[in-house]
Amino acid sequence: MKIVALCGVGIGTSAILKVNAERALERLDIEADVTAADIASVKLAAADAQVILTSSELVPSIGKTNADVIIIDNFFDLDELTAKLEAALG
């Protein structure tokens, strides 16, 4: 299972999203590889990903993808991340 945490420039916000997604997955007891990526690299990074986690603002930039795109409003809210990941993966 591969999950991509996506932000605009690939530092900071995507790393926070990655860290907290890993914490949410741990709660759910789901094994997955979470990769931080930026818009420039998302095509490649998400080619074999099941899920892309990102901000609503970046959804239009993702383009065509086979992955489920999950919009996270609050990157620090583990309850939101856990619920949305559970809905997508559970």
Partner: peptide, 23 residues
């Protein structure tokens, strides 16, 4: 410039913006 290019995604939680750019 990051916000001009990609929008307000840097507002990652209610009330909080994490301003940043590439190295």
């Amino acid at each position: 410039g990051v916000i001009e290019e990609f929008g307000a995604y840097v507002v990652i939680a209610p009330g909080l913006a994490l301003a940043h750019a590439r190295p």
